[in-house]
Write a protein that binds this DNA or RNA. Structure first.
Length: 226
DNA sequence: GCGACAG
DNA sequence: ATCTTGTCGC
């Protein structure tokens, strides 16, 4: 596409913000009919402050059988700044992505999608790069307002922006645990992102399988480095 | 100036 | 995210 040339990772926080404002208009929100045949979960751990470990786990749907797992370890220079997560984790994710031999039908990221200050969370941003449907599933809220969904599994509330528009959902997947925040990334819409995340979250689990397994692998691989 | 603030 | 053991509860 034409946005790749202007998108270098060697940018300052100020430039990163301007880049997000341009890229957000390229995001496409549309229905995702039916179900994916395969879904990928992405997560990163940090063996050292300046070293990251990205893991991508591809699962078959609806069996949840693991089809492929790839990982990439490398230096991470961009700091963690709320709203600019893609500039810290995106580069390593893309390197791992190249190692995948079978591209999944859908990718779930650990972070926001539409529910972002500039409507371009890491799920939306990476979706533009890989040109596949993506969803953002975060363990806490970054932007927007919502009421706490009651402590009953499967309860949902809308997350809205200052204009009152729905930008995501607070989903209580597990009783007694904080809700997760779901928002569409690219090539999918609000209702289908919520529908599919619910479909991929097993009873008793707070996170959907792709994300949950990616997190387990990222932590286990980090330990096995010793 | 005072909070909020993905991982 | 990371530093960290045991412990309370379903």
């Amino acid at each position: 596409m034409d946005y790749k040339p202007i998108h270098g990772w060697d940018v300052s926080p100020e430039e990163a913000i301007e880049l997000q404002k341009k890229l957000r208009d390229l995001v496409v929100l549309k229905p995702f009919p039916g179900y994916p045949r395969s879904v990928a979960g992405v997560d990163l751990s940090f063996p050292k402050p300046d070293e990251g470990l990205a893991v991508i786990v591809v699962l078959e749907f609806p069996s949840f059988r693991i089809a492929e797992v790839v990982h990439e370890r490398g230096k991470v220079s961009f700091p963690y700044i709320p709203g600019l997560l893609a500039f810290r984790e995106g580069p390593l994710f893309l390197l791992a992505w190249k190692k995948l031999r079978m591209k999944p039908d859908l990718v779930i990221f650990d972070g926001q999608g539409l529910a972002h200050p500039r409507k371009l969370g890491i799920a939306s941003h990476m979706g533009l790069f890989i040109e596949l449907p993506t969803i953002g599933v975060a363990k806490s809220k970054l932007f927007g307002s919502c009421v706490e969904p009651e402590d009953v599994p499967n309860t949902v509330t809308h997350v809205h922006d200052e204009a009152g528009k729905t930008i995501g959902f607070a989903l209580r997947t597990k009783k007694g645990a904080p809700p997760i925040f779901v928002s569409p990334g690219h090539l999918i819409n609000l209702e289908d992102s919520l529908r599919l995340v619910r479909e991929m979250t097993l009873p008793g689990q707070r996170l959907p399988e792709p994300t949950r397994l990616a997190h387990i692998y990222t932590q286990r691989l980090k330990s096995s480095l010793f």
